[in-house]
Design a protein around this nucleic acid. Structure first.
Length: 378
DNA sequence: AACAGAGGCAACCGCACCAAG
DNA sequence: GCTTGGTGCGGTTGCCTCTGT
């Protein structure tokens, strides 16, 4: 199948758009909506191909686009989402209101990628370049679980995308009033369902954020500029939790923060083992974990840009969510029994220890569940 | 002031996917 | 089931601006 590409057509203009062209395109869409992009240029009196018009509209002219510098929160979200989703810029863009996939992609390529690289983090895998996560015999279970989280999130995003398409079909060609509301595929899905709705919080992201991003926050409020935090990786241990350990060796277990059965308030040594096992049984039941995740995703509508957003970012000055991080750290430290005298066989038997990494990741997933109950953490 | 190199970003290109016929 | 048109998406290019010499 050979399609005629728009650039093959003679007489069509390429290159930068002039203000006059912008005006024509804007005026036309404002009046009629875009409808068929292919037919639009002729109707609008533009010597451009439809594709070029669509690109100009979605990346530049759309009224709901925020331009200018990315703030720290946006940067953090991009990094975390990229860790989960890879180069799926449109999916990432759905979680960054008013930012286009193109803009995010450019920002990643020109800023964030280099910055991570400088910090010694592989921008593709989001692991330290001297990989201590999945060392030796391939990836750790943690990586695998993270991968599952990403898969779920991917599935959800795809479902969202389908909804977008469906909603577009049901409301074709929204006219004037489309301006001022979300228009793009990335944004309109939420907008069409409920105009005031913010994009849903990526609950997986929240959990991920709470744990992973602490690595960027240690010792610097502008963590991304701080290469020191990345130097804390040690062999065979997940680095992030270890940072917590270094900060507070007698921390509390809070890895299932809001689950009455599984929760906290006890120190590592006090932690009731029956309680642990009951909790872990729940956590380790994949269907349960997935149900938790699904219901969390279905119920919650907490934007990463909500006013309480900072609650689940690590604030290195106040250490607000340190309990979570430290909780994980405790677990992970205990996963390396030979290195940590506080995790002797008295406290944790071998089988249990063998599953600790599972526990870590399942606990991460459980954090998602915790947010359902109105956690103060999230 | 002039030039060169680097960085940033808008736009292009082509593949992939989907729906309609 | 196949073809075709429309659109979405991610990678890449090339122009413009900034910065250093």
């Amino acid at each position: 199948m050979v399609k005629s590409q728009c650039f093959e057509k003679v007489g069509l203009k390429k290159g930068p758009w002039t203000p006059e062209e912008d005006q024509k395109l804007l005026a036309y869409i404002e009046e009629h909506g875009h409808g068929s992009w292919r037919a639009l240029p002729a109707k609008a009196g533009l010597q451009r191909c439809g594709k070029s018009c669509r690109l100009r509209w979605t990346n530049y002219l759309r009224p709901d686009i925020k331009r200018g510098k990315f703030n720290l929160q946006e940067e953090q979200s991009i990094i975390q989402l990229h860790a989960l989703l890879g180069n799926r810029w449109s999916a990432i863009a759905t979680h960054l209101p008013k930012r286009t996939d193109n803009e995010i992609k450019n920002y990643w390529n020109t800023h964030l990628k280099k910055r991570l690289d400088k910090m010694g983090i592989d921008p593709v895998t989001h692991k330290p370049k001297a990989d201590s996560f999945g060392s030796g015999s391939g990836h750790s279970k943690g990586s695998a679980n993270l991968s599952h989280m990403a898969q779920w999130e991917s599935a959800r995003l795809e479902a969202e995308a389908r909804l977008v398409r469906e909603s577009k079909l049901s409301v074709p060609n929204p006219p004037k009033n489309l301006l001022g509301s979300a228009v793009s595929a990335q944004v309109s899905d939420k907008g069409s369902a409920a105009p005031t709705e913010r994009p849903r919080c990526l609950d997986v992201l929240k959990a991920w954020q709470g744990v992973v991003f602490s690595m960027f926050s240690v010792g610097s409020s502008d963590s991304l500029e701080s290469p020191t935090s990345t130097l804390n990786f040690s062999e065979n241990a997940l680095a992030i939790p270890l940072i917590g350990v270094q900060k507070n060796p007698t921390t509390t277990l809070a890895f299932a923060t809001n689950n009455a059965t599984c929760n906290s308030g006890t120190t590592a040594s006090e932690f009731d083992r029956g309680n642990q096992l009951e909790c872990f049984e729940k956590l380790k039941e994949p269907a349960q974990v997935k149900r938790n995740l699904d219901s969390s995703m279905a119920i919650h509508d907490i934007s990463p840009y909500a006013s309480d957003h900072n609650e689940w970012f690590v604030d290195s000055s106040t250490n607000e969510n340190a309990p979570i991080i430290d909780g994980f750290s405790e677990i992970l430290v205990c996963s390396s029994l030979d290195r940590n005298p506080t995790c002797s066989g008295e406290n944790i038997n071998d089988n249990y220890a063998g599953n600790l990494e599972d526990i870590y990741w399942n606990s991460l997933l459980n954090l998602v569940d915790a947010s359902q109950t109105g956690s103060s953490v999230f």
